[in-house]
Design a protein around this nucleic acid. Structure first.
Lengths: 203, 203
DNA sequence: ATTCTCCTATTCAAATTTGACTACCGGGTC
DNA sequence: GACCCGGTAGTCAAATTTGAATAGGAGAAT
């Protein structure tokens, strides 16, 4: 559900198996701390929680010579299913959120885990919604100053609308890139779609 | 300081004194649930917490004939100072956050609590930072595909940059509007700047 | 050989957020 | 008059997030 959970699940998935610190580093290298919640505690919490929920299972507690013990996890079948479910949902659905929504960003980070046509479909669906919201917002704004609301809240709405417009453009562009064959998707390249037990983080 | 705290503090301030439900309604009417955290619990928590910290003080526990008892709060001098401090900070500072950052949005909602020239100054400062970040980002993107990062994380960065550009434009526009006399600011209109004990939510 | 600093890896208490739930009143409606 | 609905006002347990703190080893420097 939350961005954090998808990110953690997805990183473990793409490594085949991973421990907390590994996830942390990967996410930091994506600057995920900037656009989502990746404080250390959140990651370890998510790992444990999802292990509780049978989405992840412990692999082993290898005592590396150096440093503290590490606990590695990998996805269960349930976890795999959940990952796909969430990915679909977060990619396509525009919640009330202004764009920049961590959930969506996290989903984009795992885009290549989908088949090309499916990704395009979901994004196109999102696009329709975004356009709808934008038109809506534009209507409200044109309608002159608002009912009762402090006038400057209007400034907020203008920003909101501008950001929607940006989101529309960017999404359309992404769809176009996908159409023209950019990125190696799950149904194509060297196995990202179905990570073998130890596929080496090939993205 | 979270967005929630500033929002709660600010709404109490603009009413002179207010109870939880009142704050909640006002914030909902700004759609603040969409761009910040205004679940009921958060509001009541913030009120209590800030009362603890002497930023707010209880006014009275009037038993209205109808409905449950209400607890009203108003700002202390400390609270007033803190409000201004945070407002300045949140308005001018671009954290690492992508735009859409609740703290900043909350600050914009209380823009007219500042003097016009000060508001302009802070926003111009923000503008410089935003432009810097944008140039930075643009540089990174032009630099071809990234060091090691999965290629599609690039898509994320493109969105980020587009949103920065939007933010720059919008901020510049806001400054322009302020310059040309839009909005009634603290140093001008019918007392928003220094809310009397019961100024009737005049924004 | 000791101290320092940096990297690995994780833990934990405290703060905050979520959102379902309680409870009370007034007004319509069957 | 009993019943349901919607608005007012707030509470609370559970979930999540925050971020400082812990702890061990490796390599550099004094």
């Amino acid at each position: 559900m939350s961005a954090t959970r998808l990110l953690v699940l997805g990183v473990v998935r793409m490594y085949g198996s991973a421990h907390g610190y590994q996830v942390r580093r990967e996410l930091l290298s994506w600057s995920a701390d900037k656009w989502a919640n990746v404080a250390p505690g959140s990651i370890y919490h998510a790992l444990k929680k999802m292990a509780d929920e049978q989405l992840l299972e412990q692999v082993r507690t290898e005592a590396t010579g150096a440093g503290p013990d590490r606990v590695a996890y990998r996805l269960t079948d349930e976890g795999e299913a959940e990952f796909t479910r969430r990915l679909h949902q977060l990619l396509s659905e525009v919640k009330d959120d202004v764009n920049g929504n961590p959930g969506f960003l996290a989903a984009v980070a795992f885009l290549p885990a989908l088949e090309r046509e499916r990704a395009i479909g979901l994004l196109k669906y999102r696009l329709t919604q975004l356009k709808g919201n934008e038109a809506n917002m534009a209507g409200l704004l044109e309608h002159g100053t608002q009912w009762g609301q402090p006038q400057h809240v209007n400034a907020l709405y203008r920003l909101w609308q501008a950001q929607l417009a940006t989101a529309v453009e960017w999404t359309a562009d992404l769809v176009e890139r996908l159409r023209s064959g950019e990125y190696v998707m799950a149904d194509e390249g060297p196995s990202f779609g179905e990570p073998g037990p130890h596929s080496p983080a090939r993205l």
